[in-house]
Amino acid sequence: MDILYLLIPLALVLLVIAVAAFVWASRSGQFEDLEGPAYRILMDDDDPRIPRSGPAEGESAAGEEDLKPPRP
């Protein structure tokens, strides 16, 4: 029976923390757009994330040797 004096206040403290976290999340806009991230992953991005740089001076572009016919 003595354990109830510990468990009931502990449960109330955890309840208050959970309610405070939910109120904070709803006020900060965490639940406003639930479908956007799901559709965003399906969209095809045409823009590359890493910009390509041209070949350095004196170097040929990657794969350029493969396109040239072999010399006789």
Rank of each mutant, 00 (worst) to 15 (best):
M1Q: 00
M1T: 01
D2T: 00
I3S: 03
I3T: 02
I3E: 03
I3R: 01
L4Y: 08
L4W: 08
L4A: 05
Y5R: 10
Y5F: 07
L6M: 05
L6G: 05
L6N: 04
L6D: 05
L6K: 02
L7K: 05
L7T: 09
L7R: 07
L7P: 01
P9C: 07
P9W: 01
P9T: 11
P9S: 10
L10E: 03
A11I: 13
A11G: 12
L12Y: 05
L12K: 05
L12T: 06
V13N: 02
L14S: 12
L14F: 14
L15K: 01
L15I: 04
L15E: 03
V16S: 05
V16Q: 03
V16K: 04
I17R: 07
I17S: 09
A18R: 14
V19K: 02
A20G: 14
A21R: 04
F22N: 09
F22V: 07
F22D: 06
F22E: 08
F22P: 00
F22W: 10
V23T: 13
W24M: 11
A25R: 11
S26K: 14
R27E: 06
R27L: 15
R27H: 07
S28F: 13
G29Y: 03
G29E: 01
G29D: 01
F31W: 08
F31S: 05
F31Y: 12
E32S: 14
E32C: 06
E32V: 15
D33T: 08
D33S: 08
D33G: 02
L34G: 03
E35H: 02
E35A: 05
G36H: 00
G36E: 03
P37D: 01
A38G: 07
Y39S: 06
Y39K: 09
Y39R: 10
Y39A: 06
Y39M: 05
R40W: 04
I41T: 06
I41K: 07
I41G: 02
I41R: 11
L42F: 15
M43E: 15
M43G: 09
D44W: 11
D44P: 06
D44G: 07
D44F: 12
D45S: 14
D45G: 11
D46C: 03
D47F: 02
D47C: 01
D47N: 03
D47P: 00
R49D: 14
R49G: 10
R49Y: 06
R49F: 12
R49L: 15
I50T: 12
I50N: 09
I50K: 09
P51D: 11
P51I: 10
P51Q: 08
P51K: 10
R52Y: 09
R52K: 15
R52I: 09
S53Y: 12
S53K: 11
G54Y: 11
G54I: 04
P55H: 05
P55F: 08
A56D: 12
A56Y: 09
A56P: 08
A56W: 08
E57N: 10
E57A: 12
E57G: 03
G58C: 07
G58W: 06
E59H: 11
S60W: 13
S60F: 10
A61K: 09
A62D: 10
E64K: 12
E64Y: 14
E65W: 10
E65G: 13
D66N: 05
L67G: 04
L67F: 13
L67R: 15
L67W: 09
K68N: 14
K68Y: 14
P69T: 02
P69Y: 03
P70C: 01
R71D: 11
R71W: 08
R71L: 09
P72V: 02
P72F: 02
P72D: 03
